Amino acid sequence: EQLARLKREFNENRYLTERRRQQLSSELGLNEAQIKIWFQNERA
């Protein structure tokens, strides 16, 4: 579920704002660094 949600977010926007990253962190139970790194890896 977390992965599917991250992929949906990535398809909508390849870059997250700090606020959006905080929201996802709270909703998915991941820390902000994990989300940031995931997005960086997807863009690579």
Score class of each variant (00 low, 15 high):
Glu1Ile: 10
Glu1Asn: 06
Glu1Gln: 11
Glu1Lys: 05
Glu1Ala: 08
Glu1Thr: 07
Glu1Gly: 06
Glu1Phe: 09
Glu1Arg: 04
Glu1Cys: 12
Gln2Pro: 03
Gln2Phe: 07
Gln2Thr: 12
Gln2Ser: 06
Gln2Asn: 08
Leu3Ala: 05
Leu3Tyr: 10
Leu3Trp: 08
Leu3Glu: 12
Leu3Ile: 13
Leu3Pro: 00
Leu3Ser: 06
Leu3Gln: 10
Leu3Gly: 02
Ala4Asn: 07
Ala4Gln: 11
Ala4Asp: 12
Ala4Phe: 04
Ala4Thr: 06
Ala4Ser: 05
Ala4Arg: 10
Ala4Gly: 04
Arg5Trp: 08
Arg5Asp: 03
Arg5Ser: 09
Arg5Lys: 07
Arg5Met: 09
Arg5Asn: 06
Arg5Ile: 13
Arg5Ala: 12
Arg5Glu: 05
Arg5Gln: 08
Arg5Thr: 07
Arg5Tyr: 08
Arg5Phe: 07
Leu6Trp: 01
Leu6Pro: 05
Leu6Gln: 02
Leu6Tyr: 01
Leu6Met: 05
Leu6Ile: 03
Leu6Ala: 02
Leu6His: 01
Leu6Ser: 03
Leu6Gly: 02
Leu6Lys: 03
Lys7Pro: 02
Lys7His: 09
Lys7Thr: 08
Lys7Ile: 09
Lys7Asp: 04
Lys7Tyr: 07
Lys7Leu: 12
Lys7Glu: 06
Lys7Ser: 05
Lys7Ala: 06
Arg8Ser: 07
Arg8Met: 12
Arg8Lys: 14
Arg8Val: 09
Arg8Thr: 09
Arg8Pro: 02
Arg8Ala: 14
Arg8Asn: 09
Glu9Asp: 04
Glu9Gln: 04
Glu9Leu: 06
Glu9Phe: 06
Glu9Val: 05
Glu9Ser: 03
Glu9Arg: 05
Glu9Tyr: 06
Glu9Thr: 01
Phe10Leu: 03
Phe10Lys: 02
Phe10Ile: 04
Phe10Asp: 05
Phe10Gly: 01
Phe10Ser: 01
Phe10Arg: 01
Phe10Met: 02
Asn11Gln: 14
Asn11Ile: 11
Asn11Tyr: 12
Asn11His: 11
Asn11Asp: 13
Asn11Val: 11
Asn11Glu: 13
Asn11Met: 14
Asn11Cys: 15
Glu12Gly: 02
Glu12Lys: 15
Glu12Cys: 14
Glu12Ser: 08
Glu12Asn: 11
Glu12Met: 10
Glu12Leu: 11
Glu12Trp: 13
Glu12Ile: 09
Asn13Leu: 09
Asn13Gly: 05
Asn13Asp: 08
Asn13Ala: 03
Asn13Lys: 07
Arg14Asn: 11
Arg14Asp: 04
Arg14Val: 06
Arg14Lys: 13
Arg14Phe: 05
Arg14Ile: 09
Arg14Leu: 03
Arg14Pro: 15
Tyr15Asp: 05
Tyr15Pro: 03
Tyr15Ile: 11
Tyr15Ser: 06
Tyr15Gly: 03
Tyr15Met: 07
Tyr15Lys: 06
Tyr15Leu: 07
Tyr15Ala: 04
Tyr15Thr: 10
Leu16Asp: 13
Leu16Cys: 00
Leu16Ala: 03
Leu16Gln: 03
Leu16His: 02
Leu16Ile: 08
Leu16Thr: 03
Thr17Ile: 01
Thr17Phe: 03
Thr17Glu: 04
Thr17Arg: 03
Thr17Lys: 05
Thr17Val: 02
Thr17Gly: 07
Thr17Ser: 14
Thr17Pro: 04
Thr17Leu: 03
Thr17Cys: 05
Glu18Phe: 10
Glu18Tyr: 08
Glu18Pro: 14
Glu18Ile: 11
Glu18Ala: 13
Glu18His: 13
Glu18Ser: 13
Glu18Gly: 09
Glu18Asn: 12
Glu18Met: 07
Glu18Leu: 11
Glu18Lys: 15
Arg19Ala: 15
Arg19Trp: 07
Arg19His: 14
Arg19Val: 13
Arg19Ile: 11
Arg19Thr: 13
Arg19Phe: 12
Arg19Asn: 14
Arg19Gln: 15
Arg19Met: 11
Arg19Ser: 14
Arg19Pro: 10
Arg19Asp: 12
Arg19Gly: 12
Arg20Trp: 06
Arg20Val: 09
Arg20Cys: 06
Arg20Tyr: 10
Arg20Asn: 03
Arg20Ser: 05
Arg20His: 08
Arg20Leu: 10
Arg20Gln: 12
Arg21Gln: 13
Arg21Trp: 13
Arg21Phe: 12
Arg21Val: 15
Arg21Gly: 12
Arg21Glu: 07
Arg21Asn: 08
Arg21Leu: 15
Arg21Asp: 03
Arg21Tyr: 11
Gln22Pro: 00
Gln22His: 09
Gln22Gly: 04
Gln22Ala: 12
Gln22Trp: 06
Gln22Thr: 07
Gln22Val: 11
Gln22Phe: 08
Gln22Asp: 05
Gln22Glu: 08
Gln22Arg: 13
Gln22Cys: 03
Gln22Lys: 15
Gln22Leu: 11
Gln23Lys: 10
Gln23Thr: 10
Gln23Met: 10
Gln23Ala: 11
Gln23Phe: 06
Gln23Ile: 09
Gln23Asn: 08
Gln23Gly: 05
Gln23Val: 12
Gln23Ser: 06
Gln23His: 08
Gln23Trp: 11
Gln23Glu: 14
Gln23Arg: 10
Leu24Asn: 00
Leu24Ile: 09
Leu24Arg: 00
Leu24Phe: 02
Ser25Tyr: 03
Ser25Ile: 11
Ser25Asn: 01
Ser25Arg: 04
Ser25Met: 08
Ser25Lys: 05
Ser25Ala: 13
Ser26Thr: 12
Ser26Ala: 14
Ser26His: 13
Ser26Asn: 12
Ser26Gly: 07
Ser26Arg: 15
Ser26Val: 15
Ser26Cys: 06
Ser26Leu: 15
Glu27Ile: 08
Glu27Phe: 05
Glu27Gly: 02
Glu27Ser: 05
Glu27Trp: 06
Glu27Tyr: 04
Glu27Val: 07
Glu27Thr: 05
Glu27Arg: 03
Glu27Leu: 08
Leu28Ile: 11
Leu28Asp: 00
Leu28Lys: 01
Leu28Pro: 02
Leu28Glu: 01
Leu28Trp: 02
Leu28Ala: 03
Leu28Val: 06
Leu28Gln: 02
Leu28Arg: 00
Gly29Asp: 05
Gly29His: 05
Gly29Leu: 03
Gly29Arg: 04
Gly29Val: 01
Leu30Arg: 00
Leu30Val: 08
Leu30His: 01
Leu30Thr: 02
Leu30Lys: 02
Leu30Tyr: 03
Leu30Asp: 04
Asn31Cys: 15
Asn31Ile: 06
Asn31Trp: 05
Asn31Ala: 14
Asn31Pro: 15
Asn31Gln: 11
Asn31Met: 09
Asn31Gly: 13
Glu32Ile: 09
Glu32Ser: 05
Glu32Arg: 04
Glu32Asn: 03
Glu32Trp: 09
Glu32Pro: 11
Glu32Phe: 04
Glu32Gly: 05
Glu32Gln: 08
Ala33Thr: 14
Ala33Asp: 15
Ala33His: 14
Ala33Gln: 14
Ala33Asn: 14
Ala33Cys: 15
Ala33Arg: 09
Ala33Lys: 10
Ala33Tyr: 13
Ala33Gly: 08
Ala33Glu: 15
Gln34Lys: 08
Gln34Asp: 14
Gln34Ile: 15
Gln34Gly: 01
Gln34Phe: 15
Gln34Thr: 14
Gln34Arg: 04
Gln34Leu: 14
Gln34His: 10
Gln34Tyr: 15
Gln34Ala: 14
Ile35Gly: 00
Ile35Phe: 02
Ile35Val: 07
Ile35Asp: 02
Ile35Cys: 00
Ile35Gln: 00
Lys36Phe: 13
Lys36Asp: 15
Lys36Trp: 13
Lys36Glu: 15
Lys36Asn: 14
Lys36Gln: 15
Lys36Gly: 11
Lys36Ile: 15
Lys36Met: 15
Lys36Ala: 15
Lys36Arg: 12
Lys36His: 15
Lys36Thr: 15
Ile37Glu: 14
Ile37Tyr: 08
Ile37Gln: 13
Ile37Trp: 14
Ile37Gly: 06
Ile37Pro: 00
Ile37Cys: 10
Ile37His: 12
Trp38Val: 02
Trp38Glu: 01
Trp38Ala: 07
Trp38Ile: 04
Trp38Tyr: 05
Trp38Cys: 00
Trp38His: 01
Trp38Pro: 01
Trp38Met: 04
Trp38Arg: 00
Phe39Ala: 00
Phe39Gln: 01
Phe39Ser: 01
Phe39Val: 02
Phe39Pro: 01
Phe39Gly: 01
Phe39Cys: 00
Phe39Tyr: 06
Phe39Arg: 00
Phe39Met: 10
Phe39Trp: 15
Gln40Val: 07
Gln40Asp: 13
Gln40Cys: 00
Gln40Asn: 09
Gln40Tyr: 06
Gln40Gly: 04
Gln40Ile: 10
Gln40Arg: 11
Gln40Leu: 09
Gln40Thr: 07
Asn41His: 09
Asn41Pro: 02
Asn41Met: 13
Asn41Cys: 15
Asn41Leu: 11
Asn41Ser: 07
Asn41Arg: 10
Asn41Glu: 09
Asn41Tyr: 09
Asn41Phe: 07
Glu42Val: 04
Glu42Leu: 08
Glu42Asp: 04
Glu42Gln: 10
Glu42Trp: 14
Glu42Phe: 11
Glu42Met: 13
Glu42His: 06
Glu42Ile: 06
Glu42Arg: 04
Glu42Asn: 04
Glu42Lys: 03
Arg43Ser: 10
Arg43His: 11
Arg43Pro: 02
Arg43Lys: 07
Arg43Tyr: 12
Arg43Glu: 10
Arg43Phe: 14
Arg43Gly: 07
Arg43Ile: 14
Ala44Leu: 13
Ala44Lys: 11
Ala44Gln: 09
Ala44Ile: 11
Ala44His: 11
Ala44Tyr: 10
Ala44Glu: 13
